[in-house]
């Protein structure tokens, strides 16, 4: 084993900067949320009991700490609203991620197999939606999906249906919205993994008697695993907590945790419960992250 190289002062500073950033703007707010989730809800501004007040001093801290409670978490598990929202969020996100993967993979494959001088242009096209506001793009789907929207009108005009298909304000619409919005996040890592692959490996596979489909299954697909894992994480994690898409495209049956959280914070002013819901969501998302991370190559084995 090689000895770990020592860091120079310059390297240390460069490394420190992002960690300080994460500490100040991610970790600290997270701790704040955690603290709020343990507080009691009160009718005040802010609507929870503070832990520390300058007037109390250190002595007051202990007595205040004794007021911390798990009530908010108890609410989460007793009120079926939250449980339903979690399950619904995970289900919708999982289906949407799977669909995104199925749409993105052939897309990425075609991009990676396109002539080399075309590829930058194709990547540009794949990233083109980012030039328009996310909100506007999701809004545009309303015009497409609603009962008197473009899709239904077209289908009726073609005589394929008599009455409009109910798509807007359904789970289907939310999934379509997620697939559409997150496609580039799936596409690009898979493309990167496929583009890196040595084309002689496919020739070797064909040479050894594998049909094109077998070559895809036995060589191309397993070798793109890293890209697929990255894409799945990049889509699934934000999709679970997605707020805008279910809010704009969803209906009453598409309860997602993002909307529930929003309601608790801004409509009900129940900050502790909303914070607890956020903490549980975080815990739920770390689990698949760790699981998928384990699926990756062992760095000790995969030296190159």
């Amino acid at each position: 084993m090689k000895e770990a190289p020592r860091l120079t002062r310059g390297q240390l500073l460069v490394l420190l900067a992002p960690y300080l950033w994460i500490g100040a703007f991610l970790l600290a707010p997270l701790l704040l949320i955690l603290k709020i989730s343990l507080s009691q809800s009160v009718l005040a501004r802010p609507p929870y009991r503070p832990l520390f007040e300058l007037a109390d001093g250190i002595a007051g801290l202990w007595s205040k700490a004794q007021t911390l409670t798990l009530d908010a978490y108890r609410t989460l598990f007793t009120d079926s609203l939250y449980l339903d929202a979690y399950i619904s969020s995970l289900t919708i996100a999982a289906i949407a991620t799977l669909v995104t993967l199925l749409v993105a993979y052939p897309f990425a494959l075609a991009m990676a197999r396109a002539p080399a001088n075309w590829r930058p242009f194709l990547i540009g096209l794949a990233a083109a939606p980012f030039w328009t506001s996310f909100l506007i793009r999701v809004y545009a789907w309303i015009a497409l999906l609603k009962d008197e929207g473009l899709i239904n009108k077209a289908l009726i005009a073609l005589g394929m249906i008599d009455t409009p298909i109910e798509m807007f304000a359904t789970r289907f619409a939310v999934i379509v919205g997620i697939v559409y919005s997150y496609l580039p996040f799936m596409l690009l890592p898979i493309y990167a993994a496929l583009e890196r692959q040595d084309p002689t490996l496919r020739e070797a596979s064909a040479d050894l008697g594998a049909s094109p489909f077998e070559t895809f299954l036995r060589v191309t697909l397993p070798l793109s695993r890293e890209g697929v894992i990255a894409g799945v994480l990049l889509v699934f994690i934000p999709a679970v907590g997605e707020f805008v898409i279910p809010d704009l495209l969803g209906g009453s049956d598409t309860l997602m945790i993002g909307r529930t959280l929003w309601n608790d914070f801004f409509a009900n002013h129940d900050w502790p419960t909303a914070s607890a819901a956020a903490v549980v969501l975080l815990a739920l998302l770390i689990a698949p992250l760790v699981a998928l991370e384990r699926l990756r190559y062992d760095p000790k084995k995969d030296g190159s």
Binding site: E203, A204, S205, D207, L208, G209, P222, R225
Partner: peptide, 27 residues
């Protein structure tokens, strides 16, 4: 190529990095 009864040893070897030695030979 996959129907031809010839096999090729590639200059770069083109071994499958996701398979072990046994599975490469068994491919």
């Amino acid at each position: 190529p996959y129907r031809r009864p010839v096999n090729m040893m590639f200059q770069s070897y083109a071994l499958f990095p996701h398979l072990n030695v046994y599975e490469n030979v068994a491919f």
